[in-house]
Nucleic acid binder design. Structure first.
Length: 700
RNA sequence: AGCGGGAUGGGAUAGCCAGGAGAUUCCGGCGGGCUCAUAACCCGCAGAUCGGUAGUUCAAAUCUACCUCCCGCUACCA
């Protein structure tokens, strides 16, 4: 694999992480799919042959578990999502050359062939491991099919990790007191023979591979740690029905060994490329050339699955004698209004929702691609979205397109008959170079900027030359300026196509061009537009402030609502605490525990301080209330607390207490209260510290 | 705990890999221009010494070390 600059004369394949057939798509997903799509389009615009392939990830425990919950076949369950994805992508102009799924025949065959090769080459061995087994259901229980107690912290844990306690990853066999999540039966551990892939054999290869890997730096750097720590071999089989059968010649054991989902998932990249070749013919695009001879393989993934793509995957490819990826672009996450996207809390912008709001997909594409670097986390807010759209797409690009074409139409009924000036020609060539550089840096932001900056230049250019003043005084010069502007407008269209394909196509049509701008390459940017074209229209609409307010309010309301609903959902899994609670006896008098967990951030919102009571006296007319003066280091606060009848007020001064300092002020019986003293229960047992905590220290 | 990524004018971002004149662009603020254009566009001004400390260097936002604070990853979850 060499690192010639894009475009190379090799075929390229661009992929994105497979969507897992288990839930709705949101803009977090979309960022990756749009990114890969835009990158693929950029390569094509640069003149490189490239295919964009992907497919749905159908296997794995979550699909099996959720299908079972709904009482449907896992295949039907996953296919339903698959079809939904298939319909959704085109709506965002995510244009796959092939979109398959991991359960289709091609992928089953390809996967089994690759695994067989790895086996033949001696990279796979068998090992006995402990697997949970449900004797009543006569079924093995991989991963999340089993729950039990974490051996490290004693919390309730899933089979694969201590999800509620110490967060530790758990090996099969580690969970204590295992029970089946299917039947609730106690499970037992049995010895099972599983297949292991000798990843450890590839340490040197992978080190070298990472040295040459392009894309984002996190994809290159993060896996190094694993290699340095020593790679462990990888268990690639599971005891379940749903998945691709391990390709045994002799079917030893005879039961349900299927391949681990992470084996067949990336192989779908290959399978999907194969299907593309099957459809268009090897003359047009040859999958073998890319995957087995020399091609530019570029993966777009989320940064949470770097390990799978930068360790396991290249090891598999190397072991089975396939080409290694040239680049891995690991994108950051999307946050919503500064907070982490959370599907369970409904803090997300769903793909469907975005479309239902009637926004054009290219607007979101532009926003997601140009707001931050690929590797960076990008925040989404409707406000920022509006700013981006109105400022850059409407104000800069759309405005330049419209004013240029309209002027040209009114005065010349199209493109004036002169040559483009040298300066403008050179400026367009500069933008083309920018695009090429951006592609080689895997910078889609740069791709978008190459176009918008050219449009900005166009606005400067037309402003500086004021053709509206020249039409009478110096018609030749006016024609020259507009000729230049029309060319710039066309070039902006060509350059913007990877990011905003629909809008670029509309411009193309307004210019009276034939065919699809997507099928053109960079040379088109400098080719003369048609002599005549019709009156242009505006290509981007402004988003009004009221609209943004509505959308923001809608989102907030939904998040609030979901937090309530979420409680119910979480009750099921959070029930965990119930077992322990019953052990603790006489809980009847206690307030039930809140099921709703809060994040650390929310806790951080509470400014709790150590204070010292300096004065305490009762409030006239109130039964329980007392007025306290509490020293919290910085200042002395007056607070009102309901402890009058329950404490001897005279003894309080000098006592340390715990004060919620950022409680909003309140007035009780005419006395202002600036904080809240923490106390336990109806007896108002005052909380204090048991060490040397200083006055004013934060409780955390 | 280890590792990865980040910390740049009021907000948001670029630059850092390939160190060089006190730093990009967008939004916002202030002043001006233009009127072909979706109150749009163009020009100018104010504003950050680039998380902290210590180094390397003639020269550091850019390299090195340590530290602080965010986000994430840690393999049989997808």
């Amino acid at each position: 694999m060499s690192n010639d600059e894009f475009p190379t004369d090799r075929p390229a394949v661009v992929t994105c992480g497979l969507p897992y057939a288990n839930g709705d798509l949101h803009i977090g997903h979309l960022r990756g799919y749009i990114g890969a799509d835009a990158f693929n389009r950029t390569l094509e615009t640069l003149g490189q042959t490239s295919a964009y392939v992907c497919g749905s990830d159908m296997h794995g425990t979550p699909v099996a578990v959720n299908a079972e919950k709904e009482g449907v076949d896992p295949e039907d369950f996953a296919l339903e999502w698959h079809h939904q994805y298939e319909e959704t992508f085109p709506k965002f102009n995510v244009d796959f050359d092939n979109y398959g799924h991991t359960h289709d025949e091609t992928n089953v065959e390809t996967t089994q062939e690759i695994v067989r090769t790895l086996d033949d080459e001696g990279y796979i061995y068998e090992k006995e491991i402990q697997v949970a087994y449900d004797p009543d259901a006569d079924q093995y229980l991989p991963d999340r099919y089993v729950e039990g107690t974490c051996p490290y912290c004693g919390e309730k844990a899933r089979g694969d990790e201590c999800d509620e306690g110490c967060q530790r990853h758990l090996e099969p066999g580690e969970v204590e007191d295992p029970t089946s999540t299917i039947t609730g039966n106690p499970a037992e551990y049995r010895e099972r023979t599983h297949k292991f892939f000798e990843v450890s054999e590839f340490a040197d290869y992978l080190t070298e591979f990472l040295d040459g890997l392009e894309g984002t730096s996190n994809a290159r750097n993060q896996p190094r740690q694993w290699i340095e720590d020593g790679l462990q071999d990888w268990c690639i089989t599971r005891d379940m029905d749903w998945g691709i059968d391990y390709p045994n010649g002799n079917d030893e054991g005879g039961d349900d060994l299927v391949l681990y989902v992470w084996v067949d998932a990336p192989i779908e990249y290959i399978s999907s490329t194969k299907q593309y070749t099957d459809r268009v013919g090897a003359d047009e695009y040859d999958w073998e050339h890319v995957w087995r001879e020399d091609g530019d393989i570029v993966h777009f993934i989320g940064r949470d699955i770097i390990q799978h793509h930068a360790i396991f995957w290249p090891a598999m490819l190397e072991g089975a004698d396939y080409n290694a990826p040239r680049g891995i672009a690991a994108t950051g996450f999307i946050t919503i209004n500064g907070k982490g996207l959370s599907t369970s809390r409904n803090r997300a912008i769903w793909a469907k929702e975005y479309l239902e709001e009637g926004f054009h997909p290219d607007l979101l594409r532009y926003y997601l691609m140009t707001t931050g670097g690929l590797q960076q986390d990008v925040d989404f807010s409707w406000e920022a979205f509006q700013e981006k759209v109105n400022g850059e797409l409407v104000g800069t690009v759309g405005n330049f397109w419209y004013r240029s074409l309209l002027f040209a139409y009114r005065n010349y009924e199209g493109t004036p008959e002169t040559e483009v000036s040298e300066d403008v020609h050179a400026r367009i060539e500069g933008a083309i170079d920018d695009l090429r550089d951006a592609a080689n840096d895997y910078s889609l932001r740069g791709v978008g900027q190459a176009a918008t900056e050219l449009a900005q230049f166009g606005n400067e250019y037309i402003q500086r030359n004021e053709p509206w003043k020249l039409t009478d005084d110096d018609p030749e010069q006016a024609a020259q300026v507009i000729r230049d502007c029309v060319q710039i407008a066309k070039a902006v269209g060509v350059l913007l196509e990877p990011i905003a394909p629909d809008k670029a196509q509309l411009l193309w049509e307004q210019l009276g061009e034939d065919g699809a701008v997507a099928d053109t390459n960079l040379e088109a940017a400098l080719e003369t537009p048609p002599r005549h074209f019709e009156e242009p229209g505006e290509l981007f609409d402004k988003i009004e402030d009221e609209r943004v307010d509505d959308l923001t309010a809608k989102l907030e309301a939904r998040v609030d609502e979901a937090s309530d609903d979420g409680d119910e959902d979480e009750t099921e899994s959070d029930d965990t605490g119930a077992d322990e609670a019953t052990d603790m006896a006489d809980t009847d008098d206690l307030e039930p525990l809140l099921e709703d967990r809060i994040g650390f951030d929310e806790f951080q919102d509470l400014d709790i301080r150590v204070g010292q009571i300096e004065a305490a006296d009762g409030i006239e007319g109130a039964d329980d209330l007392a007025r306290l003066e509490v020293d919290i280091g910085f200042e002395t606060r007056q607070v009102v607390a309901g402890i009058k009848q329950l404490h001897d007020l005279e003894e309080l001064p000098g006592e340390k207490c715990i004060l919620l300092a950022n409680m909003e002020p309140a007035e009780l019986f005419g006395v202002e209260s600036n904080g809240m003293i923490l106390a336990a229960g109806d007896d108002a047992d005052l909380l204090t510290t048991h060490g040397d905590a200083e006055i004013g220290e934060k409780v955390q």
